[in-house]
Design a protein around this nucleic acid. Structure first.
Lengths: 250, 250
DNA sequence: ATATTGAATTTGTCTAAATAAAATATTATA
DNA sequence: TATAATATTTTATTTAGACAAATTCAATAT
């Protein structure tokens, strides 16, 4: 089956999805199994087994031994390039197109396979070369390098300690909407009041409001001690976005 | 084959391409033949024959009689919606992303099948609700209506008459680049000096420069008499584009 | 040493989109 | 009216991406 437009020697959209997902999976555990990948993508084992074979043959993956699927150098770069596109698009949608934190994911997932690197660069410029996306995730460099930033979660933060929200580790729209509505977006400062024992809820203070957070919620919110390395704090009054001002060509 | 992402009940990318192409073909002649469509898309006759059957079954096309393929109401709307996306994207690429007149087509062709209507709306807003794209073509309305604007070409223009360039009827990058470099972009005024007999070249004056144009070239350039209904004239000093200014969310 | 189990792979099937080659239908012409 | 030319449709194949069911493989547990 031929694509309606020419992808040159780029990996197919499907391949990019596999590669990106495996990238995610192997960030923490260094290796992934076929079944993990299948579960993560929602495909059947056979489908994934077959595809992994192809991607290995094409040099994107290394499949050493049963549960030892990982990305090759080439795969890493591919993954980072796609991820860069995705995160730049998400930032664009958020900052310029009036999308909410919980709405950027779907659109970006479709666009990331389709925009050229050139357009990604242009968008990056428009956005003023952001370091992070609206969820607080680092945007990989053009060359395909994603710096490893290890963060702690709000759940792990000691009582009475003040922190800055750095990143939100979820793509679930419901959760994101809730977090956003609480005002816990990346860049915002908050203080952990206390944690109830036996995995009980965490109480935090944001903007002089005291909010209770479930363990799951608190574990999704990654923080840094005091002054944050992220881009500037972001207020999200949705549908309150002005169009960017037209440049020279007028 | 299932798409990696969900297109809901939208037509496939491939279908959108057929529909759009048939839209183009039937703007002038009201009917298209299988062979015309095949030629326009660069597909084989059998492929097109088959696909036309499907699209007819799905209610996008009406295939009355041999060479009488045309769009149904539903097909018209689909075509216009895709075309609207394409032209908004082209305008965006041109005005905000530093793309040249001859470079917008490819990127837009890929993106038009993938962006949501919502994003198209957002882009439209950013651009200040443009009426025409960088080639001077009308941008269809959100509801899927493309006004018919009948224009004359530079070739048909009488000697010594002053006109405004309205639209460029080509997607060929080479030609577009050349036209752009001559400064004959939509919105620009020029004067037809004279035409050599027997389909000879046309001489025109732009910015006090006298330029000779081949018949093919002059036939591609559509014009209106004096003051143009297009958006404001556009200077295209490429790579001279400033990033749009960031809006409220900062 | 042999079941049992769980993971991975193979095999066979499906669909959408494309092709080429053969068959058929329509129109125009001698 | 028969025939040549042209346009269209059918038939059989291909490829990528998916699935389910059957099978193989390796590591334990008995």
């Amino acid at each position: 089956m031929r694509k309606p437009y020419d992808r040159k020697n780029m990996p197919s959209e499907s391949s990019e999805m596999y590669i990106q997902k495996i990238f995610r999976l192997t960030r923490k555990q260094s290796n992934a199994s076929i079944s993990e990948i299948a579960a993560a993508l929602g495909f059947s084992l056979s489908t994934v087994s077959e595809k992994v074979k192809h991607l290995t043959h094409d040099g994107y993956l290394v499949h050493e031994w049963r549960e030892h699927v990982s990305l090759s150098e080439k795969g890493q770069i591919t993954a980072c390039k796609t991820l860069r596109k995705r995160r730049l698009i998400e930032t664009f949608l958020y900052k310029f197109a009036g999308y909410g934190l919980h709405e950027v994911h779907d659109e970006a997932c479709r666009l990331e396979h389709v925009i050229s690197e050139r357009l990604a660069d242009a968008i990056e410029g428009m956005l003023g070369f952001p370091k992070t996306d609206p969820h607080g995730h680092d945007i990989p460099s053009k060359k395909g390098i994603l710096p490893e930033r290890k963060l702690t979660t709000l759940y792990e933060t000691a009582d009475e300690k003040s922190v800055t929200v750095a990143a939100l580790q979820t793509t679930d729209p419901e959760l994101l909407k809730y977090i956003n509505d609480m005002g816990l977006t990346p860049g915002i400062q908050c203080e952990v009041i206390d944690k109830a024992p036996f995995k009980g809820p965490v109480r935090i203070k944001v903007n002089d409001c005291i909010l209770p957070l479930s363990v799951t919620m608190a574990s999704l919110i990654e923080v840094v001690p005091a002054p944050c390395t992220n881009d500037k704090p972001v207020r999200n009054k949705q549908n309150n976005v002005k169009a960017p001002v037209a440049p020279i060509k007028s």
